[in-house]
Design a protein around this nucleic acid. Structure first.
Lengths: 149, 149
DNA sequence: ATAGCTGCAAATGCTTTGCAAGGCC
DNA sequence: GGCCTTGCAAAGCATTTGCAGCTAT
């Protein structure tokens, strides 16, 4: 079974540089504009992250970048379409975007609304019934909800 | 392992009657008002269902009930708090409520935005890591996303 | 009688969109 | 230059809330 994490790791060094982000964007068919560069650098420059549009916008502004919230939304969706991000449906109105697009699952701390990766492929899902005819499984989301003991 | 479905089945006959719904509400500490009776009857009168507030409201209005959308929202959350419903975070802004509160999982047809139960406990999740200390697993959501072949 | 419900309309929170101005190739 | 992007403000949706009036017990 192919495991995406390998690819992600392989790109890490490139992604940490400006040239790397520019490259990533061009490969995705997106012009490396100032705003996309800044957001891409924040998203892909470090380890894997879970962000909402608002979090990313605040962070960009805090580092002195001029980006509008609307552009953050648009950019997140462009990155998602390009396969650089995955959107997570957790709950409530907020949309989370995950920079780790490989095959993995999540802990969700209900009280704080905080997301954590469950690393690697430690989780195995067995006993799946056949999907209805004419359909195929595109993805399996597993969210382990945690509450305070 | 306890399996909630047993309890649900045992109540089915009662829930199909008006008296049964009234009983269900009283046990949940909710007054059996006209609106709650109507919504409860729609929700618990038949087989398990997945509804949004808007779907349920339209359905109620279509059967000649006078209920406001705000009351549908409030009622759904009251039912959820009472353990009669479970809320599903699927995607986008819409909240789905599931009348089957037992341990089961879902197929989600991406194209149509349609939800289906995966019956019983055919799915097994193995290899869960320890939850972070101070927390316990409250629930595991598995959503199998389907696309057209 | 009174605590609890309901309906309306306004408010909220997140997200998307229209369009004029600006930037990349 | 021409097409893609951006920013702003306005619009859009789903949902929640304040509050006056109604209702179950």
């Amino acid at each position: 079974m192919w495991h995406g994490r390998v690819k992600v790791e392989a790109n890490k060094d490139m992604e940490r540089t400006h040239a790397g982000v520019a490259d990533l964007l061009r490969k995705a068919g997106l012009r490396p504009t100032r705003q996309r560069m800044a957001l891409g650098y924040l998203l892909f420059g470090k380890e894997d992250r879970h962000v909402t549009a608002e979090m990313l916008h605040e962070e960009a502004v805090a580092t002195g970048e001029r980006v509008s919230l609307a552009t953050v939304y648009n950019t997140l969706h462009q990155f998602k379409r390009a396969g650089l991000l995955r959107e997570l449906a957790i709950e409530g109105a907020k949309a989370y975007f995950d920079t780790n697009t490989s095959n993995h699952n999540h802990f969700y701390l209900e009280r704080e609304g905080h997301l954590m990766d469950i690393p690697g492929d430690t989780i195995r899902v067995d006993g799946l019934p056949e999907p209805p005819s004419g359909t195929r499984i595109s993805h399996i989301d597993v969210v382990v909800r945690l509450s305070k003991r």
